[in-house]
Nucleic acid binder design. Structure first.
Lengths: 150, 150
DNA sequence: ACTAAATAGTACTTATTCGATCCCATATAA
DNA sequence: TTATATGGGATCGAATAAGTACTATTTAGT
């Protein structure tokens, strides 16, 4: 179904939730309660997000997590990449060069273009967008080469 | 990594390969050899593609599979949907309404917009595009609501 | 100095999905 | 009638995802 991992969905939920909170620090525990998610999982996700530089943390009593940057400056693409790694629909898109279809891998080059299209779509959406509704439908222009109409 | 299943990758490979073949029928066996894929898996995939109406088949000696429509009229999105089901990055995007984040599911509406963006990107690429190279990079316009600049 | 509350890191276990295979029925051309 | 195809399930193992548990470290407050 071309779906993202459930953990990634959780992560965007966490980030969006933090975008709502004006306070500097929110604990993993509190976020788990607010979103009705298992606490250990939330803790683990926040650590990952921290390593990716998307959230900053404060240890000790009264500590917690907070967005590393303003919500408008963090894209959904970044959150996905933090949890799942870089966007790449197919494996050969990464350039490993070990797929069995190597033969006519013009296909591979085309997958790369498609990947990029998805990437761009995800980069265009910020956490601020997710927090406050009102996304507008997308308009693409010229994803593929017009054959003989120009 | 936001990747499609390997089977789906195989399926697009099969379809692209058929787009190359001028002959009416190609057997599953032959396709398996040409693409160096396990024969039983190829057979299963072609059955799925047949049920989805993307390939037509001819039983018996000399039979095989062929594209149901011209390559230019079959999109990558259709192939993905045939194998993996409809494009939906998150589960709640399907509208089941059982995700635990229900609370502030403006988020859900936004995921739907993102899904659609991906969908559009995949619909824009046909098998003919995959077979003959030369895809052009994408240009998006206005995926998200311009806040206060207009 | 001590304690409670929080993150940091890692290892482990379980569940689910994916991928591959096999079997038997049905159709068809030679 | 036979060899060669597809059609439709059922099944099995491996890979991956998700959840859990444990220990160490940091820090505010008393």
């Amino acid at each position: 179904m071309l779906r993202i991992a459930k953990l990634t969905d959780y992560a965007t939920g966490l980030m969006t939730q933090m975008a709502h909170q004006p306070e500097r620090w929110v604990s993993a525990q509190q976020l788990a309660v607010e979103l009705s998610l298992p606490a250990p999982t939330v803790a683990r996700l926040l650590k990952l997000l921290g390593r990716a530089g998307l959230v900053v943390s404060q240890r000790g009593k009264g500590g917690g997590y907070g967005l590393a940057r303003p919500a408008r400056e963090i894209s959904v693409a970044e959150v996905i990449a933090a949890i799942e790694g870089p966007v790449a629909l197919t494996e050969c898109a990464l350039g490993d060069g070990r797929c069995s279809l190597e033969r006519d891998c013009a296909t591979r080059a085309n997958w790369r273009v498609i990947n990029q299209a998805v990437q761009v779509a995800l980069e265009a959406v910020s956490l601020a967008d997710m927090a406050a509704p009102r996304l507008r439908p997308v308009q693409f222009s010229s994803l593929h080469h017009q054959p003989r109409k120009v």
